[in-house]
Structures are given as structure tokens and as C-alpha cells.
Nucleic acid binder design. Structure first.
Lengths: 369, 369
DNA sequence: AAACGCTGCGCAAACGTTTTCCGGCCTTTC
DNA sequence: GAAAGGCCGGAAAACGTTTGCGCAGCGTTT
């Protein structure tokens, strides 16, 4: 209509720019930039004028331009294995909350254990020039790591990672929680305790399994090879693994699983038999996902706190990104694990026949209370 | 060390730029840009030179610069209610796969039903200048919508949304699947069917409940007010709602839930009583999350396909973003729902006493087979 | 043979910031 | 009272792209 302005062009929308604010506050764009970025050298009166103008015109700094010139995107990459595994959304949630609270955006990607997909994911993160990446996959192909490492931006790994200056590692203390689990079962009277591991190509799966072996050995309990079977950290895998255990000549009285999804699969497998949990077989999970307490019966499990993990990851990344961060030199960040006892564990069947636990009573259809 | 170049500066890393490629291919940067963006007017020979140079120096276009000048970030916003509700990761996964395959990145955010959080989320999306936003929360505060709408970029809503040119709506056919569920139960002999809704401030919860009422009315089945209770789409809510139903004078023989998480809560509540599923009470969920088939017993549920939803959302957004997209004019995108029968539904207890279903037998500790 | 149109490449102007450098003013000190 | 120094704000140069515009070269038409 009115020809006074330049043609509106076909661009998206004339977002209000720093210039508009500067004009309105009668200062230079440099001053606006400084004010908005909280640089203290700007005069309070001017700052007030600037903020007023900002509010009036509804100015929002253009992130792209900002990133372009400063070289920092204020985006953190977060790589997980499988977003559909309930453990990870919980982690993502915590990570995102913390990152956003600290002024960062999050770019999420799940590898689905697929190297090609991972490759593309890393590529995309590079392309968006994230400021750092947290690789929370609990094991990633050596080759992929290399790719990330050579671009030398801040990285956080879980369990293990290359010994390089801007790489930080979240050291999960698996031994602690798993020992508690084994001792809990042993205290209840279990002697034949089986273990369903994660996929053994994953470093973390091996670590967890070894922690189990060690804890058993500490108590002088024997672990026949047959009672350690490999799962894949999915419900399907847990179900299949349990079916293999059920085929054994001598059944275990308790099963510890490398994660909660596996444990859910185990419950499912047992539901298709006459064995009841925990009456005939006790089951222990790992992770303590929210769902664990809603299983039937609620799952005894080793808790690995998402919040702790996420907090350490975000802090670790910031330590690498921001110059003179207080914990810049800290390479290893410890993460604790602890047992949470619920109703999927109980005395082994034969041990105390006279005593019936509440959980067992319920399962047999006798009204509780 | 060597003073020939300018100081390396404290910037992140000297990413190889389009200029380097241009020099190497002995063309202008404009030609490189055109080649990389697949603009056909460039001579095949030159293009080959350019691609060679790109490969040699490992050129990756700088997304920020690209977005800055073109005004398009190639990022799609995806707003969900709760990333920790298993339905959403599945949706996110599908959405992301499709978006990435079509050259877009995804920025995810969950509202957690918190207006403040939602506000900030929208703000952040604006700031990152996403090309469009899919609001897959199944109900969002009117006020928030307004905020999004006024910035007039392409939007996709579920169920309902303002009648505006670049807004598209995914019309989920709740009636279809819920009718199938009601008819399935009725066919088994159920007459007292209860319904646990979502939080009624959510439009979608009301819609689903009304679909239930309508389907019941079609069959001439009575629905007393007391047998429709409000849940909140969480396990906790489902459990609490079922406990309210259990306090009723006349117990329903079947319960349909507004989503699967609610149904899981229901199973949990029933597990704490003497009622068994499906022997005493049949349970139907909604969504068909992956977990549904791993419940004990596996959940009969109404499937709403994540893939379908995600595909429609991505297409809908692209239709709004890209000029002359084939389906640019299509405002409503239909989404089907269908019943998936598993083992949480069966004949009502009294109806055929002689007949015991496999599921019931298992539950009573009699070996199947 | 000349003129016209078309194709395809290069030049250079944006895009909206951050950040360096420089100059001016005010304060302080001798 | 003058010089020196410090502080604060503005001008302008990047950052790495996309894209409008003009121009050269070539083929076709009159």
C-alpha cells in the first residue's frame, strides 16, 4: 500500500532489531548490546533507557546473529541411546531443566545403537555448532567418539572416555548399588542369584556384570556361568533372557537385571509361567525409572539418579565451555547408586515356609489386612 | 608463533568457510553457495569442481550464517506435554526421524502443564526463530496459543486450533477407536462400563469422554454419572481414579481409560485388591504405547499411531513453511484410531462361569497349556 | 550481419549481532 | 590550573552466508 517504506520483501517477518532499540533509547547499538548482555560498564541511566526501549518494542536478540559473531551457540548437545527407553526421557527432562536455567538450549538426539544414525547425529550437531556435547549413551562406538573428539569441543562421557583436556567423565559407582542389591538378597536368604546383563558390547554392561560377580564373590556365593545371561536392555531382551534362565536345571531364586526395562521383561516372562514374584523368584532392576514403582509388584531396584547425572553433565560441559569455570580442572565426576527396596524381592520360597509376606498373600488372592 | 597470519584469536575454531572452497574451486562464493544449495542454474562442470573442493577441505555450511541471511532456521519446534509420559518419546522419535530425513532439525520442549514453563518455551522457540511449531500437547491454554499465533508462523495443533491461514489441525478420530472399544466390551457381555477421563480442563479429555458417552448411548447402555471419573493422564491419577470407582456400590465390570498411563495406574490399583484383570474387571487403555503390550496382563487399548501423527505434523508444518507445497491449502489432517485387543479384556465374571480364559487360568496359578 | 534474448557467473549488499578501538569527557593529582 | 589517567559510549569491522543485479558470452532470429 504505502510506498514510503521499502518493499516488505518475502522474508519471514521484520523482527525488531537492535537498531530500533538504539534509536529509541537514543544510544548506539553497541550500548544496547552491552546493556542487554549485562556488561557492567554501562551507565545505569542509559541502561534504564535501554531496558525501557527494549520493553516497548519487544526486542528479542537474534540468536543466529549472536552465535554467528560470538562463535558460541549456547546450545548443548545431548546424545542418548534410545529416547523411547523410559530412563532417557527422565534424564532429558532433568538435563533440559538445568541447561535452560543456566541459559543454554538443548539439542537432543538418540542413536538407537545405529552407527549410521549416530554419525549423522554428530554431523548435525557440528553443523549447528553446539558448544559442547554430553554423550550419555552408556557406551558408544570407539570410532564415533573419535569423530567427536577431533573437533575438540567440550565433551562429557559416562563411565569412560579418552584422556584429553576438555573431556570430562561421569564415573558411576555401579559397585555400590549392586553390592547393596546382592547383600539385600543374600540377607533374605537367597543363594542362587542370577544376573541378566546388558549387551556385552557395551562397556557399561560389562562393568555392571563384573560388579555383580565381585559382590557375589565377596559373600562367598558361587556364580555358575549359566546363571549370567546376556540381555539387551529392552523388555523383549529381558523376557527372552528370563526364558533362558527358566530352562535351567536349577532355577535361581533371585534375578538381578542390568536395567529396569530388562526387569520388566522378566516380570512379563514369569507371568506366563506358574512362578510368582516375589514368592518364587525375587527380581531386582537397575536405574529406578519412575515406572519401576508402578510395576506389579513394584520393583526393587538400584537407583541411579537422573538428576545427579544430568547436573554433573551440565556442570561438566560448562566447566569445559566457560573460561575460568571453578571446576574447570575436574576430570572425573562421581555419581552414586543406591538400592531402593520395594516388593519384587522377598525371602526365597523354601526358606521360611511358615511366613507369608503381604505381597505373596495378595498375589494368592487373599485379601490383605 | 608464526606472525604471518593474524592472531588465532580466542574464537572457537577456524571452521573452513565458503571462501576457502571458492578459492580452491576457482569460482566465486556465490557459485559455491548455489552449488551447495542445489540451484540448477550452475554449470555441471563447475559444480563438479565445487563438490570436489568441498570434499577436500571438509566444508560444512555454517547454519547460523545461513539462517541469519535467509531468515529460515530449518528448525521445527515440537511442544509436548510431558516428555516422561512414554507416549511422547515415541512421538518425538517419529517426528525427529521424519524431520531430519526432510532436512530439518527439531527443537523439543515439554510444558509439564505449567503455563510459566510453556511461556518460556515459546519464548525460546521464537528466539531460536524456528520455522514452525507443532503443538502436540493435546490441549494448551488459550492464552499461550494466542502468543504463538500472533507471531504468525506455521503452526500445527491437535484436535482444534484457531481458524487462520497458516494453522493446520490434526483431527484425531477418537470416536472411531473408542466406539470399537465399547463395542468390543459390549460384545463380551459387559454392561457396566466405567470411564476414567483425562483432566477435564483439557479439550481432548472432554472429547474422548464424550466419544465414550456417545458410543455407549448408541448401544443403549446406561452411563451413570458416578461411573465417569476424572483422572489426569498419569499412573498416579489412574490409580486414584480406580480407587474411587472401587468405592462405588455397584462395581463396573470394565473400565476404559483416557490413556495408557491411566490404565497402568488402574492395573496397579486393582493389584492391591482381590479383583483380578481381566477375570473380575476388564481394562482398556488409549494410545497403544509400546509398554502396553508389556503390562501384566498385556493391555487392550485403542491405538493412536505416533507415526501417523508425526507424519501429519511434519507435513503440515512443511505445507505452511515452504512456498507452493502441494498440500498448502489443506487445513485438517485426519488421524485414525483403532482398537488393539490384548489380554486385559475378557468376559465379565458372572456371564459364562463355566468358561475360564487362558489369562484367568494363569493368574490363578494353574499351569497354562 | 546485426540485434535480441537467454543462460550462467561474479560482485557486492544485506542479515543482526559482538567486540575492538578510539576519542571525549570527567576526575584526580601535582 | 594544567596534565594525566580512567571510564564510558560510539563508530565500524568483522562473522559466513544468500541473493538481487549486472554483465559477458553465445545462440537464434530477422
Amino acid at each position: 500500500m504505502s510506498p514510503k517504506k521499502k518493499a516488505p520483501s518475502n522474508r519471514r517477518r521484520a523482527a525488531v532489531s537492535i537498531r530500533e532499540v538504539a534509536r529509541r533509547a537514543r544510544v548506539s547499538i553497541a550500548t544496547v548490546s552491552r546493556t542487554v548482555n549485562g556488561i557492567s560498564s554501562v551507565d545505569p541511566d542509559l541502561a534504564k533507557r535501554v531496558w525501557k526501549a527494549v520493553a516497548e518494542v519487544g526486542y528479542v536478540p537474534n540468536t543466529q546473529a549472536r552465535a554467528l559473531v560470538s562463535g558460541r551457540s549456547r546450545i548443548l548437545g545431548l546424545i542418548v541411546s534410545e529416547i523411547t527407553n523410559p530412563f532417557f526421557p527422565e534424564l532429558v527432562q532433568e538435563f533440559e531443566n538445568l541447561a535452560v536455567a543456566q541459559g543454554y538450549e538443548v539439542m537432543i538426539g538418540s542413536t538407537n545403537y545405529d552407527p549410521v544414525r549416530t554419525e549423522s547425529l554428530i554431523q548435525r550437531m557440528l553443523q549447528r555448532s553446539v558448544d559442547g556435547v554430553a554423550v550419555m549413551t552408556f557406551g558408544i562406538e570407539e570410532e564415533q567418539v573419535q569423530k567427536l573428539v577431533e573437533h575438540e569441543f567440550p565433551l562429557v562421557f559416562v563411565d569412560a572416555g579418552p584422556e584429553l583436556p576438555n573431556i570430562r567423565v561421569l564415573k558411576v559407582n555401579y559397585a555400590q548399588g549392586i553390592r547393596e542389591a546382592v547383600q539385600h538378597l543374600a540377607a533374605l536368604g537367597h543363594r542362587q542369584i542370577a544376573f541378566i546383563s546388558g549387551p556385552l558390547r557395551m562397556r557399561t554392561a560389562v562393568t555392571r556384570r563384573d560388579a555383580f560377580r565381585k559382590s557375589m564373590a565377596e559373600l562367598g556365593l558361587n556364580v555358575p556361568d549359566a546363571s549370567i545371561v546376556e540381555g539387551d536392555h529392552t523388555m523383549e531382551g529381558g523376557k527372552a533372557a528370563m526364558e533362558r534362565l527358566l530352562a535351567l536345571a536349577e532355577l535361581p531364586t533371585a534375578v538381578i537385571c542390568s536395567n529396569d526395562m530388562t526387569a520388566i521383561g522378566v516380570l512379563h516372562a514369569l507371568d506366563e509361567t506358574t512362578h510368582q514374584v516375589p514368592r518364587d523368584i525375587s527380581v531386582v532392576g537397575f536405574d529406578d525409572i519412575h515406572l519401576a514403582q508402578f510395576m506389579l509388584p513394584p520393583l526393587t531396584t538400584v537407583q541411579m539418579s537422573c538428576r545427579e547425572l544430568a547436573a554433573a553433565a551440565v556442570q561438566g560441559l560448562r566447566a569445559g565451555i566457560e573460561p575460568n569455570h571453578p571446576k574447570a580442572a575436574q576430570r572425573e565426576w562421581p555419581i552414586a547408586t543406591r538400592l531402593v527396596v520395594r516388593r519384587s524381592t522377598d525371602f526365597p520360597r523354601g526358606s521360611l515356609p511358615a511366613r507369608r509376606t503381604p505381597a505373596a498373600r495378595r498375589r494368592n488372592g487373599v485379601a490383605a489386612k
